[in-house]
C-alpha cells in the first residue's frame, strides 16, 4: 500500500502512523521520519519558509523513489506526505513512513526514501529572515549521502 501526497495543508502525524498500522498484522516494524522547519539556518534567524514545487513531476518523482525502495526492501506500506506553500518554524514539512516485517528493512527503507527525496524531489525552499528572503542552496552532504546507497554496503534486502 503506497500513499504519496503533496499538499498545502498540515498533516496529522498520529493519523499517518495509524494508516501504517490499521489492519496490518504482518509488519513488526514501523519507522517514520518527520522533517520540520527550524528557526535558524546558516547563522540567521528564520521566520518562515516558502516552499515551491513542480506539480506533476513532484508526485511522479516521489512515486518512483517509493518504487525503488520497495524493490530493494520488503516494505508493505509506504506513506510520503510533503507540504508546499507557506510554513513557519516548528511546522512539519515532510512525513516519510514505512512498515516492514523486520526493523532493518524499515530503517533502511525510510532512510533511502528520505535521502533520495532530498536530492530528487522537485521542491525549492525560500527562507524568510530579518534581512530579507533567500533561496536555500543544496548541500553537498545530501549528494554524498546517496553514495552510501550505491556502494552496496547495506545488507538488505528483501529476504
Amino acid at each position: 500500500m503506497r500513499v504519496i501526497r503533496v499538499q498545502a495543508e498540515a498533516f496529522d502525524i498520529q493519523q499517518e502512523y495509524d494508516a501504517l498500522c490499521t489492519g496490518n498484522r504482518e509488519d513488526g516494524a514501523v519507522v517514520f521520519f518527520v522533517g520540520r522547519v527550524r528557526d535558524m539556518n546558516d547563522g540567521d534567524a528564520i521566520t518562515g519558509l516558502h516552499l515551491e514545487h513542480y506539480p506533476g513531476m513532484t508526485e511522479k518523482t516521489l512515486a518512483s523513489i517509493a518504487e525503488r525502495a520497495a524493490q530493494r526492501w520488503l516494505l508493505n506500506r509506504i506513506r510520503i506526505t510533503h507540504r508546499f506553500g507557506e510554513l513557519y518554524p516548528a511546522d512539519a514539512i515532510v512525513f516519510v513512513g514505512v512498515s516492514s516485517p523486520h526493523r532493518q528493512a524499515a530503517f533502511d527503507g525510510a532512510a533511502f526514501i528520505m535521502d533520495h527525496l532530498k536530492t530528487e524531489a522537485t521542491f525549492w525552499k525560500k527562507e524568510k529572515t530579518p534581512n530579507g528572503n533567500r533561496w536555500v542552496t543544496s548541500r553537498d552532504s545530501d549528494q554524498q549521502r546517496l553514495a552510501h546507497w550505491q556502494q552496496g554496503e547495506i545488507t538488505d534486502e528483501r529476504d
Binding site: H82, M114, W124
Partner: peptide, 8 residues
C-alpha cells in the same frame, strides 16, 4: 529548467 532541489 530548475536549480538543484532543496525539499525535505
Amino acid at each position: 529548467l530548475f536549480p538543484p532541489v532543496t525539499g525535505g
